[in-house]
Design a protein around this nucleic acid. Sequence first.
RNA 1: GGGGGCGUAGCGAAGAUGGUUAUCGCGCCGGCCUGUCAAGCCGGAGAUCGCGGGUUCAAUCCCCGUCGCUCCCGCCA
Length: 598
Amino acid sequence: MKRSHTCGELTPADKGKQITLNGWVHRIRDHGGIHFINLRDRYGITQVVVDETAPQTLKDLAASLKFEYCIAVRGTVRPRPESMVNPDMPTGSIEIEAKEIEVLSACETLPFMVDERSEAREELRLKYRFLDLRSFAMQQNIRLRHEVSFAAREYLVSKGFYEIETPTLIRSTPEGARDFLVPSRIKAGSFYALPQSPQLFKQILMVSGFDRYFQLAHCYRDEDARGDRQPEHTQIDMEMSFVSKEDVFEVVEGMLSHVFKKTLNIEIPTPFQRIPFDTAMDLYGSDKPDLRFGLAFRDISQLAEKSDFNVFKSVVGDGGVIKALKVSKGAAFSRKQIDELEKAAKTYGAKGLAWMKVTDSGLDGGIARFFENITDTLISTMEAEPGDLLLFVADKWKTACTSLGAVRSKLGEDLELGRSNEYRFCWVIDFPLFEEDEETGGWAAAHHMFTMPQQQYLDTMEKDPGAVKGDLYDLVCNGMEIASGSIRIHDPEIQKRIFNIVGFDEEEARRRFGFLLDAFQYGPPPHGGIAPGLDRLVMIMAGEKTIRDVIPFPKNTIGASPMDDSPSLVDEDQLKELHLQVIEESDESEGQDSQQQE
RNA sequence: GGGGGCGUAGCGAAGAUGGUUAUCGCGCCGGCCUGUCAAGCCGGAGAUCGCGGGUUCAAUCCCCGUCGCUCCCGCCA
């Protein structure tokens, strides 16, 4: 019995039609003489009725149905009597009077119920992913993901982009994250790597004249997972020739506007706000600030020097800063709540979180007594009112900013300052090109080594690498980095200077990126690009808290997939073909390893 | 590598200063029921309280260890 309709489309206008539906038994209500079956497919749910007039064989069959049986139903569409219409159901004003039911396949007792949203623990949901994906919430998420992908493609193609594939077995370029390696059978002892991104290939496509490229690219990074990242993810990867960063912004803003309009019917205002990295850190303590709420920091370093608080004074004396945050009405916070906030600050390296409360008569509690001589100045600097809570972190600039930023994020979460259906985008720009490598004490590329330094630093780049800003940019939405990109270097001379600063000699550069450098000898165009993360974008749009809820078959936090039980051991023969031998870890060898590392 | 949380029936949870038979909802099995839509009512089965060790007359509860999952720091150009 092949379906004539889906479970989401029948209306009173179909009254009297003989139809056939296929789907899964979502709910059964057996009243003895009358059976109701909610039949579900991905389009919706339709109520099927087997009533007292049905032949006994049909009644018996209806009574034997269980959750998630896959069945076919032939019957007649009939409007429900007025009093029995279900207004909560799109198909709630009709039902199917069953004439025949066929069980297409039975279903075992379920490990968990297929509901709107499964409440089973994630481990179990992942093991029975095929069932979890039947839930309404997951069906919605996967549908949204499809629609976002489609709308992105639609927009980019309309703007003249070609979708071009790049290989997933590539050379390992041991930069950045740890590579996943794939052993070569033919070339003993050699390995491919899975791409962390199509970076080098898309740049080469620009050299080849493809002008505007995009790809929904799978990227692989062998690093520890989090709620918003896992070993493999999908990027809407793109690259353009003859562009400035403004051109890249325009494409991405246009694409996201199109995507939001087409999928959620939401207008997102463009252009997006731009915030320099330094400002983002200074005001919000993060390079991915959540702008759905304020809570901007103030710097009271100079003011603190006039206080009696030696802790602050010595930090400022050592070149540190005092960052302050005003929480309106925060004076009502309990000591425990403040302790929780301090814990958040400490995870990012702060030594503590100082606080005081603003009262009708001045300042009170915490470190208030050290500020008695400058109470009014502090209150006016903070624009504070009685009932507010003031929070302070004193440390090196970066630590002070990031740890108070953690406090800000926690406040945003705890006080539910960010509405889930609001989308606040911003471009974070003017990132430092280099950062200090704590292991070697030298300089390392903050993004990657092919990022163009901003014009004004070209003359002084070697003298003060730490001051150099790059032409690189992140797109941030609601406190999450959802895209990262840059204008690339196409001038071999500048490229050489960058390699030099990060301590790459010519030979090493050739060994790692020779093919790209070769390509750049043959008339490379100026180019730049960006790569929005599809998973994070869909996660935000779906209002989910983890990337795993918008990935059909995700890995768990240790990179395993409970459904197919990967990663798994392989046969000796497979290893032999690949010239591999597994070394059992023992306490001894671990000891040796750690000695070697030190 | 480090820190926090969790682990009790198929699922989700509760629980006891350590003490006879470990509780509730869903699901499962059986019965009743003609209009429900999270149907309802009656009855039943189902748990070595993650695993190992210790303390104790007695441990699911306390202690130590271990495993698994999860959140976070590190890591993630």
